[in-house]
């Protein structure tokens, strides 16, 4: 055991329950859950937050977040969050959505929440594939990437190009804060945590909609070890998506930048 002089510098956050995570070994979901929970704990908002969950691998994530929760149907989280936000104007409200959930079936709900400037935060988890249903093509699947529904590799002439969600949302006037981070290294994880904190701060300041895109892995459906999957994010996803802070609230400009 540690000696008395040693102090704890990293411990599990109160923002997560003690329920063991059900995700595959090495899955980024656990890292992203922890970042959100840590930020809410550090901001003193665990008692004042309502999360809205997706459908996909994270469909049961209310078991892990130590905050109030409303689960949504596939793609509908921003609409559900809008209802919660209008019912509880002083709460922190966030959605947790994957790329199939947000960028395919729910792109209308997501974009219109941003267009309305709805004071919610969306954490967008992009691993370029449908995880829970077994590795089908997503709107964010890269050209040439093989999935169970693009077995010969995604072809632009048949299915178009991967959609760069943070870039697209940064063009929407109601979106006040848009950032794009990753989980492929400790440095990237720490940077992503800062983005998540700024997104929640944007919401609490009443600036409007905020979105943090987080590049994530899928070791199981990519067919890679977790360590190789993190390298694959770095080498393949990062170059294909706009990274960093794309948009900060006008009132906050001139402040601390990434």
């Amino acid at each position: 055991m540690p000696e008395a002089a040693e102090k704890c510098v990293f411990k599990p956050t109160e923002g997560l329950t003690e329920k063991p995570l059900h995700y595959c070994p090495g899955c980024s979901h656990g890292i992203i859950h922890r970042l959100i929970a840590e930020v809410l704990e550090e901001m003193g908002q665990l008692d004042n937050t309502v999360g809205v969950g997706p459908v996909g691998c994270a469909a049961f994530c209310e078991q892990y977040f130590n905050v109030d929760w409303v689960a949504a149907a596939h793609g509908r989280a921003p609409a559900v969050a809008t209802g919660v936000r209008r019912a509880v104007p002083d709460a922190v409200v966030f959605t947790y959505q994957g790329d199939g959930d947000l960028a395919a079936i729910g792109i209308a709900e997501a974009m219109h929440a941003a267009i309305r400037g709805e004071k919610i935060t969306t954490i967008f988890v992009n691993n370029a594939i449908y995880g829970m249903t077994g590795g089908q093509m997503a709107p964010t699947t890269l050209i040439g990437m093989k999935t169970t529904t693009s077995p010969y590799g995604r072809k632009a002439e048949e299915t178009g190009y991967p959609v760069d969600i943070p870039k697209l949302f940064s063009e929407i006037p109601g979106a006040a804060y848009v950032a794009s981070g990753s989980t492929d290294s400790p440095k990237a994880v720490l940077q992503t945590k800062k983005y998540i904190r700024r997104a929640f701060e944007t919401q609490l300041a009443g600036h409007g909609y905020s979105l943090v895109s987080v590049l994530s892995n899928c070791p199981t459906n990519w067919g890679l070890t977790p360590v190789k999957a993190m390298e694959w994010i770095r080498e393949n996803l990062v170059p294909n998506y706009t990274m960093g802070e794309l948009k900060v609230p006008t009132a906050a400009k001139g402040g601390e930048q990434a």
């Binding site: 949504a72 609409a79 969050a81 809008t82 209802g83 019912a87 709900e109």
Partner: peptide, 11 residues
């Protein structure tokens, strides 16, 4: 689904 969110919050 907006209704679902608002009703889920008890309104």
């Amino acid at each position: 689904y907006m209704l679902l969110g608002a009703a889920g919050a008890g309104e």
